[in-house]
């Protein structure tokens, strides 16, 4: 699936009627099977962009098209992984993963057994088969993140929208999950088998490691500052992180957002 943002603008209206522009004139195309990462300082509207693609928020002006058709609301073709995972605390790991299949349209026509099989397969894919009957509160942050990923994959949306999914994790878990995310996305296989991904982060190294293209945003209001192509070869691995090109691209992105980041940190 391709996603097209055409001059998208989003204003928030405060209770007293004051209008604050959150996103201004964002145009962006996500190609079929492309892994696009948005980086930017906090307040740059990156989550708003993702929510608008998901259909959770409406743009004030401009158009968002999914495979050429306007986005009017949430849909199972565009799956979201939320920043703090949004796992249902009253459902076990397996029940969370089964949730969209059992209660949403994606599982229509699937028998209970078929759902069970799909859940098992997805849990195995993310390495959680042993934790299937635990509740979210019994899991570590990294495991919760895997559950959220499994729940997202289980109903096979065509586009994966991921809002800072690794932000709450420690550095080592993060590195491991970045590798796994690329494996699950299918970086070892043919490009045609990959799904379209929009991934949000504030960590530049994470962005460069994962992305085909990095969209650098600036804040107040959120605009696209520059779109940086990442032509590092796939599959990427630990060697990629040591590649001088990797460092060069990361330096370039840092130079783009440095000033704003300093301002944000000291205000």
């Amino acid at each position: 699936m391709t996603i097209d943002l055409q001059s998208v603008r989003k204003e928030f209206v405060a209770r007293d009627g004051a209008r604050t522009p959150a996103v201004e004139d964002v145009s962006l195309t996500l190609g079929e099977g492309e892994f696009v990462v948005i980086v930017g300082p906090s307040g740059c509207g990156k989550t708003t962009v993702l929510n608008m693609i998901a259909g959770l928020e409406r743009p004030t002006a401009g158009a968002i098209l999914a495979d050429g058709r306007p986005v009017t609301g949430p849909g199972v073709d565009r799956g979201v992984m939320f920043q703090d995972y949004a796992l249902f605390p009253w459902r076990t790991v397996a029940e969370n993963v089964a949730f969209p299949l059992r209660f949403g349209p994606a599982g229509a026509g699937l028998s209970g057994a078929a759902i069970g099989d799909r859940v098992d397969a997805t849990l195995t894919l993310v390495g959680l088969a042993a934790a299937r009957d635990k509740y979210p509160h019994q899991l570590s942050g990294g495991m919760r993140q895997r559950v959220a990923l499994a729940r997202l994959l289980s109903y096979e949306p065509k586009v994966l929208l991921m809002d800072e999914p690794l932000a709450a994790l420690d550095a080592q878990t993060r590195t491991i999950l970045q590798d796994e995310l690329l494996r699950i996305w299918g970086q070892d296989g043919p490009a045609a088998s990959r799904r379209t991904v929009l991934f949000i982060t504030h960590a530049i190294d994470e962005a460069v490691f994962l992305a085909d293209r990095v969209v650098v945003m600036s804040s107040h209001p959120g605009r696209v500052r520059e779109i940086v192509p990442v032509d590092l070869p796939r599959p990427r691995n630990d060697a990629t992180r040591a590649d001088p090109d990797f460092q060069r691209i990361a330096q370039h992105i840092w130079s783009l957002i440095k000033n704003e980041a300093y301002r944000a940190a000291t205000s």
Partner: peptide, 16 residues
């Protein structure tokens, strides 16, 4: 609110 939104992205109806 996030849980409600998550369910929305999975295509659940309001009553569900």
């Amino acid at each position: 609110r996030k849980l409600v939104r998550a369910a929305e992205t999975m295509g659940l109806s309001q009553s569900a």
